[in-house]
């Protein structure tokens, strides 16, 4: 028989539990509403939603035009709008322009399109440094941009939310929309990465 060690819960987890049970006890929060919200962000929304939008823009030039002209309207066509993505702006990365999204005041993020933000997006370091030294921040993410590329930082300080439309990688001509979506990462849609081409298939008898 192995001994099973229970690690004590972290202080923040205990605090959240205490607040939650108080709110439920006082009838301020309905546990069923909480479960609905948690289920939504654990299983329904996430970067796969944004990846679907990006892949469609890559294969459908008319959709891409509408997406860049009116992000909110084009995303609504696909039925993918939702809380904290009500007013969407989509910015396109090209060979000469690279876009990066940040929220310096808090951690505004298109929840319905990308899910909940990663921890680093909420960190003070990212929020302060992305505006003043975006190129150094990108380099730390492994993305070194030449001087010929203009870096545009979008600080989501009001009620508009931003999505980066990354460049379609080379070598993806024959891929289906679904296969293209599988290549698109969360970081590429925030602007801290590029979408990588699919890796060459490994020969069976390597």
């Amino acid at each position: 028989m192995t001994t099973h060690h229970h690690r004590p819960e972290s202080e923040i987890a205990l605090r959240v539990k205490a607040i939650e049970s108080l709110l439920v006890e006082k009838g301020i929060v309905d546990p069923a509403a909480l479960d609905t919200i948690i289920e939504h962000y654990e299983h329904q929304v996430g970067p796969h939603v944004g990846a679907q939008i990006v892949a469609k823009a890559w294969v459908d030039p008319d959709f891409k035009r509408r997406l860049l002209a009116d992000g909110t309207g084009a995303i609504a066509e696909l039925g993918l709008t939702g809380f904290s993505s009500e007013h969407m702006i989509v910015v396109e990365n090209t060979a000469t322009v690279h876009n990066l999204i940040v929220c310096t005041l808090c951690s505004c993020y298109p929840w319905a399109i990308l899910g909940l933000p990663p921890t680093w997006y909420k960190s003070l370091a990212y929020r302060s440094r992305a505006v003043i030294e975006p190129r150094s921040v990108l380099a730390e993410f492994g993305l070194v941009l030449p001087d010929t590329v203009e870096v545009r930082v979008w600080d989501s300080n009001a009620d508009l939310r931003y999505l980066v439309l990354p460049e379609r990688p080379d070598g993806t001509d024959g891929l289906s929309e679904e296969a293209l979506a599988a290549l698109v990462t969360r970081n590429a849609m925030i602007g801290t990465a590029k979408v990588q081409p699919p890796s060459a298939p490994t020969p069976i008898a390597a």
């Binding site: 505006v131 190129r135 203009e150 870096v151 545009r152 930082v153 600080d155 300080n157 009001a158 009620d159």
Partner: peptide, 8 residues
């Protein structure tokens, strides 16, 4: 070349 966009 670089720029920052804000919604004001």
């Amino acid at each position: 070349s670089d720029a920052l966009y804000l919604d004001l």
